[in-house]
Design a protein around this nucleic acid. Structure first.
Length: 483
DNA sequence: ATGTGC
């Protein structure tokens, strides 16, 4: 690790001399301990990313970084599209617009506790989860093409949600410029019956409590809708399912064919397959990826609709009466065209965030009007046993193109986790801790054991110390559905 | 992450 230069307590740099072809230095965020425990693969991958055409300022990795496909998960790479910058599916992730949504209620822990089993059992029954699960939204292939072009806006038009939900979603729930003609039939086939499904792996839905001692910034918390101690909220994490996966697969193949032969781009790892952003292939993938982003917004919108229905039934009051308003919906697997100041000059950059959350500060364009004064809500999910955070974007985030962490980050492989824990026992241990969990698979549950992840409090402390975001509320789980 | 894979 002697190749790491300490820039501050939470910033570590690998210089361009480290590897041939690096165009910019790599910077990894985290405390000394988090850096010490990071996969060695992260350093190799982030320095590979530093060789890509158009990369601007730094190849970055957040404190929850771990080994991924081509790019590290936790990676941020901003490409200068006016100077040959590329777009790379590996910098976005297979699960396009994997993201988080947070919804409040006006219920307290005391009111929910007696019903938690009934509540979680009903959520589990009503929200399809697990590999290969099918949704309940029955639409034609052509209608699905409209869903991926219109995102959550399609859902609200079709009575899956409230009009005011839309302004509390990144891009207002519809990434403009999505073009279904750039999507393969295979992707359409895989996605058409997956709207409103949670998925598997680390995708989950959680009922959480904002304990009094965990409300760090009461004013911002109130702006976000968390107004009382022990308030119950719902957080969930899912993405674009088989649809996004197929889009990524399709375009990785396309890029591998043209990258060198047509554009003369040489890369260190096939998994970094890319194309110039300003090329027919790059533009086609950008328009297709936007469909993946919209599928995911629609997916989370329909899931929210079901959550509201279940709460209304269990508590015998309407979702409106229960104050089930959205805080925000954030993506953490995307590439977006943004304006950023680099060395004093405004530049148009394609910012890849893979396992990294956008964290725009106060007064920035695209932050919802009701949050303009305090910054964008940042939702970071921990492991199912430990806890999660609601944070806010800050001005000093400019250093990372206003990006921060997205979760805890694994420290143990899924294989090793399955050998270390039994899902059945874990469920009992979690019950003893006050968390009622339901899962579609015991081995899947074991894979998500809290101890297989970095400590979420350490990760969050590093992001705050580095000036990437600000803690608002820590949220404690009381019920969980694991996909 | 993923109808889990050349």
């Amino acid at each position: 690790m002697d190749f790491l230069e300490r820039i501050s307590d939470t910033i570590w740099e690998i210089p361009v001399s480290y590897k041939e072809g690096m165009r910019v230095p790599a910077r990894i965020y985290g405390s000394q301990q988090l850096i010490r425990e990071m996969d060695a693969g992260v350093f190799d991958q982030v320095t590979n990313v530093a060789t890509l055409p158009g990369i601007t300022k730094y190849a970055l990795c957040m404190p929850d970084g771990h080994f991924g496909y081509g790019f590290p998960i936790g990676g941020v790479a901003a490409m200068d599209i006016e100077n040959g910058g590329v777009i790379s599916p590996g910098g976005i992730g297979f699960d396009i617009n994997c993201g988080m949504r947070l919804v409040v209620t006006n219920l307290t822990y005391k009111e929910v506790k007696p019903h938690i089993k009934q509540l979680v059992d009903n959520l589990y029954k009503q929200i399809p989860a697990g590999v290969g699960s099918k949704g309940f939204v029955d639409i034609s292939r052509n209608e699905f093409r409209r869903v991926v072009e219109q995102g959550a806006q399609w859902c609200v038009r079709n009575d899956y949600g409230w009009e005011e939900d839309l302004e509390l979603i990144e891009e207002n729930g519809c990434f403009a410029g999505a073009d279904a003609s750039k999507i393969s039939d295979r992707a359409i086939d895989r996605g058409a019956n997956q709207i409103g499904t949670l998925g598997s792996g680390n995708h989950y839905l959680e009922v959480q409590v904002a304990k009094k001692e965990h409300i760090f910034d009461p004013e911002i918390a109130e702006t976000f809708g968390i107004t009382m101690p022990d308030q119950v909220v719902i957080m969930f994490h899912c993405g674009s399912r088989g649809f996004g996966h197929q889009v990524a697969t399709d375009y990785l193949q396309t890029f591998l064919k043209v990258m060198d032969s047509k554009y003369g781009i040489k890369i260190l790892d096939r998994e970094l397959a890319c194309a110039p952003f300003n090329s027919p292939e790059g533009q086609a993938y950008f328009a297709a990826m936007k469909c993946g982003i919209n599928m995911s917004f629609a997916n989370r919108q329909v899931i929210l609709h079901r959550i509201r229905e279940v709460f209304a039934r269990v508590f015998g009051r309407s979702a409106r009466d229960l104050g089930m308003n959205m805080v925000y919906d954030v993506a953490h697997n995307t590439a977006k065209l943004e304006q950023h100041k680099v060395d004093g000059k405004e530049r148009s950059l394609l910012v890849h965030r893979k396992g990294s959350t956008r964290a725009f500060g106060p007064h920035m364009t695209d932050v919802p009007k009701q949050y303009q004064a305090v910054g964008q809500p940042v939702i970071i999910g921990g492991s199912m046993e430990t806890g999660s955070y609601l944070l806010a974007g800050v001005e000093t985030g400019a250093e990372t193109f206003f990006s921060t962490a997205h979760g805890s980050g694994r420290t143990m492989s899924r294989t090793k986790a399955r050998k270390t824990w039994r899902g059945e026992q874990l469920q009992k241990d979690m019950a003893a801790k006050g968390i009622y969990v339901r899962s579609t698979s015991w081995s899947g549950l074991a894979e998500e054991a809290g101890a297989a992840y970095k400590n979420i409090d350490d990760v969050i402390a590093a992001t705050e110390l580095a000036g990437l975001c600000k803690r608002v509320v820590r949220l404690t789980p009381i019920g969980n559905i694991k996909g």
